[in-house]
Structures are given as C-alpha cells and as structure tokens.
Amino acid sequence: MNQSILEVKGLKTSFFTDDGEVPAVDGVDFSVGEGEILGIVGESGCGKSVTSLSIMGLLPSPPGKIVGGSISFKGEDISHAKESRMRKLRGNDIAMIFQEPMTSLNPVFTIGDQLMEAIRLHNRLPKKELAARAAELLKMVGLPRAKELLKEYPHELSGGMRQRVMIAMAMSCNPKVLIADEPTTALDVTIQAQILDLMLKLNRETHTAIILITHDLGVVAQVCKRVVVMYAGKVVEEGDVKDIFNHPKHPYTEGLIRSIPDLHSKKDKLYTIKGSVPRPGSIEKGCLFAPRCEYVMDKCRTDSPELVGDSHKSRCFLHQVQE
C-alpha cells in the first residue's frame, strides 16, 4: 500500500448548541494514501461533511469544535493547528470542492479574478504568468475558450462548467489531497459522468489523492478504490470497494446496497431499512444501528462494537463472533 498522506484517528467533532453538546462525528478513523481515491459514503446526518470540514479547519466555530482525536497531514497533527498554519495548507496542500457549484463561486468577481487569486495566494507569480496559468488550468479541466472565460462571471456559466472551474481552482496549487464533498450531486447525470471522468483523469495525471464524499453508492462503486461507510457519526465499515459491494459485512451497508433500485433488472419490491437515522446523541448505549438492524442480538443493545478487521473492517458483533 502507498504511504498514507492524511490520517484521521479517533476524530470527534461536536456542535455546542443551546440544547447541549451534539456529537456530529464520534470517533472516525481512516487514512488516505498518496494518489488514492477514497470514498466516504453515508446518508445525510452521518457526519461525512463535518469530517471534511474538520480536516480543512473550516468548521463553523462556534458552535462546531473538534473535541478529540487527531488529523495528521504528512505526519503533522493539524487538528488544532493555528489559523495561520491552516491558511498555508488550505488550497495549497489540501483543497476542497463543494456540492453546490451554483453558489460556490463569488457572483460579483470574474472567473479569472477568482482563479488567479487561488494561484496567487500560494505562489508569487507576475501578473502575466498568473493569467497564463489560469487559462492553462481551465484547459486542463476541459473548458473551451479559456481566455474569454477568464473575463466572464459565474452566472454566465452552466452548473457543469462552474464545477469544472471549482475543480480548476482546487487543483491550481497541485494539492496533495482533494476533498470533494458531493461534487456531482447537484448535477445532471450526463454532466456528472463528465465531472467524474475529469476527476479520474486528474487523479491519474497529477497523482492527487481524492477523498470523495457522497451519498451515491453508484458513484462510489464507479470511482473509488477504497470505501469508508459512515452511520450516525461513526465509521461502520471500511475496505476495498469490491469487498464492500460484493461482501458487505455491516448490516447497514448491506441494507443500503439492497435499497437501490437496479437499472438493469426490475425487482418486484425494494428492500428497505426500517425506521430512520437516529438524532445524534439520542442513543446512549449499544450499537447505533441496533434499533433498525435485522440481525440485532441482545448484546447489540447494551455494548458498543469496535471497528475491527485487517483490510476489511466492520463495526458489528456479527463478524466479531465469527472471527
């Protein structure tokens, strides 16, 4: 395996609201190897986006705060790094793109302004070279008419084009890690295919590691090498993408996969996971999935399982009994 470049250990992030502490991320571990594409998958409220914001140091604070664990980038713990240190890392070593390409670009500055700013923040370049580099980046992400585009405003571009601009901006300083938070969720399926294709191409060419955060198992299956499945603020399963999809260990992962309608064959009835995601902090003991689990045992209601296994880990007593 490649050397890991980003390692998250026991990360706990909470929001401190008027109703008390809400643990959004509650002990998350994973690592990303150089040049790897890691998928983090889960439904809304599972803590996947909070995890990414914690890594970037972009938690809305207050009320959000990292209350435990570590995030090491190239061996340096950045979970409580100073803002000045994080500013040097952000955009330069760790870049991020977001779900909403329509609102993620500043509407009153040109594409060129925003792109050149991203470059200039971490590189001292003369103005002419800046513009040339910006145009080059736009070409790299497959946008035609790069020169004219630099002078245009975000509202003149389609959603797909804006997401390409966001990617160009994120790639402007050759980051080691690119965190993509639901990058294609707001896009149409044919545009999604274009963007995923582009991300794969950039990963091959630049060797930038990608953390792809999504709720779409299809996207994960098509793009990622390794997958982390999150549920209610915890990692419930982690492993190679083929292992996860072919032999899911955690009942939640299994349920998710079985819930998706199949494009190629018609099932009579869809599998459903009963109930809904618990509110953070509402289950005090036992496995967080126990109330919805088909295979629930007495033990699950009292004890919390650990994430165990070698290359294919799961947080479920079913497999710990077998092993």
């Binding site: 994080m86 890392l89 700013e117 994120a170």
Partner: peptide, 12 residues
C-alpha cells in the same frame, strides 16, 4: 454563503 467558504478553502 457558499462562496465565502470557498474563499476560506483557498487559504484566503
């Protein structure tokens, strides 16, 4: 807004 978050993510 989202674009402020983008600006922060750039390291501004």
């Amino acid at each position: 807004s989202d674009y402020i978050r983008t600006a922060k993510a750039k390291g501004q």
